[in-house]
């Protein structure tokens, strides 16, 4: 056997080790940790580009929108529902659905992309998250937004993405009131983030200067935090 054949064997051997998966699974997180800061920076740069072009309302694909939930479907009483806005804001808020409905309403027909690989065009309508944060007099010290959900799902966003004009607190989907499975009465939607960033059954918004230990239900298990599209 000559040198090249040995090299070939080595290549084949190391690749089957790689492909064998398990042996190197522990390394996956290290690879992610090493590459994500740079990727995140590029993603944030790209995201500074303003609005994403929208789809036509007749392009929605209701059947393609699958339902993912980590903890069942909480049923929230619309009468008793309140959206709490606190943290680094000048005026903490507790908004009922009537108050939300009285704010300017927007619709965004966007592609909802799931980390699993599927996608669906959906028309989300509701108020801009930015409008709610401004109503609460967002402090310039704020850097991150923590989002609590009724099913104890947790998320955190960078403020730039939260203030994006197409980031909505949606109360309607494809022209009808939001179904319970899709996050009724209020959920987060944005064309610039993967699906798991778009919390359903949103009940609390907290503005903070720094990210804490917990960054998100899925992020804490190993999924990327920025998750931009």
């Amino acid at each position: 056997m000559n040198r090249r054949q040995l090299l070939g064997l080595g290549l084949g051997g190391s690749s089957s080790l790689l492909l064998g998966g398990c042996a190197l699974n522990g390394v996956s997180a290290a690879v992610g940790d090493a590459s994500q800061p740079l990727n995140e920076r590029l993603e944030a740069l790209l995201q500074g580009q303003g609005k994403v072009p929208e789809f036509r309302p007749d392009q929605v694909e209701p059947a393609a929108l699958l339902v993912n939930s980590f903890n069942g479907v909480p049923r929230l009483d619309p009468e008793r529902y309140r959206l709490q806005v606190k943290g680094l804001v000048g005026r903490p808020l507790s908004l009922d659905l009537g108050t939300l409905a009285a704010l300017p309403q927007h619709t965004c027909v966007m592609r909802h992309v799931c980390v699993e690989g599927w996608a669906a065009v959906v028309a989300w309508s509701g108020v801009r998250l930015a409008d709610v944060l401004r109503l609460a007099q967002l402090s310039p010290l704020g850097g991150y937004l923590l989002i609590d959900s009724a099913d104890s799902y947790f998320e955190s966003w960078d403020l730039a993405s939260a203030l994006h004009p197409q980031t909505l607190l949606a109360t309607h989907m494809n022209g009808a009131p939001l179904p319970a499975a899709n996050g009724a009465p209020v959920r987060l939607t944005a064309p610039i983030k993967l699906g798991y960033k778009q919390s359903k059954w949103v009940t609390g918004l907290r503005v903070t200067a720094q990210l804490g230990e917990r960054r998100g239900t899925w992020e804490d298990q190993g999924y990327e935090w920025f998750a931009g599209l």
């Binding site: 699974n25 996956s28 997180a29 690879v31 992610g32 980390v115 899925w218 190993g222 999924y223």
Partner: peptide, 22 residues
């Protein structure tokens, strides 16, 4: 088949895929 995959689970696969794409 798992033998042909790398990462062990979705997040791990994404770590490798987006870690090496650059």
């Amino acid at each position: 088949p798992e033998l042909l995959t790398l990462g062990g689970w979705l997040a791990g696969g994404r770590d490798w895929h987006f870690g090496f794409m650059g």
